[in-house]
């Protein structure tokens, strides 16, 4: 059922020429240099320490590695990660 709604959302976004994340609540990832990373529409934090943060999303897991990582903001709709980001990996994405 969910996949069907996703397909409809994709078609609507394509016809109206609007960004996909505004129609479907897919995770949005925005990086500013290697200093900060914003993740929208997340489903919670799986693991958190100074060198690794794992964030769960609808499509899979996001692994952020680096050093001195901290959660600048942790809201329901978005999280902002700050620090020296070394890598961003998408694990088991559909």
């Amino acid at each position: 059922m969910k996949d069907k709604w996703v397909q409809i959302g994709e078609k609507v976004a394509d016809i109206l020429d609007i960004p996909l994340e505004t129609v479907i609540d897919w995770p949005g990832i925005a990086m500013s240099g290697n200093k900060s990373l914003v993740i929208q529409n997340h489903l919670g934090i799986i693991e958190y320490d100074q060198e690794l943060i794992r964030v769960n999303t609808k499509l899979g897991e996001i692994r952020i590695t680096g050093s001195s990582l901290s959660l600048l903001v942790a809201y329901k709709e978005e999280i902002v990660i700050e620090g020296r980001i070394g890598g961003v990996q998408l694990v088991d994405w559909r």
């Binding site: 100074q50 901290s70 959660l71 600048l72 999280i79």
Partner: peptide
Amino acid sequence: TNSGLRIWDVKW
């Protein structure tokens, strides 16, 4: 976060 409470400057 799921309860709608806002936390920030979370440091390990």
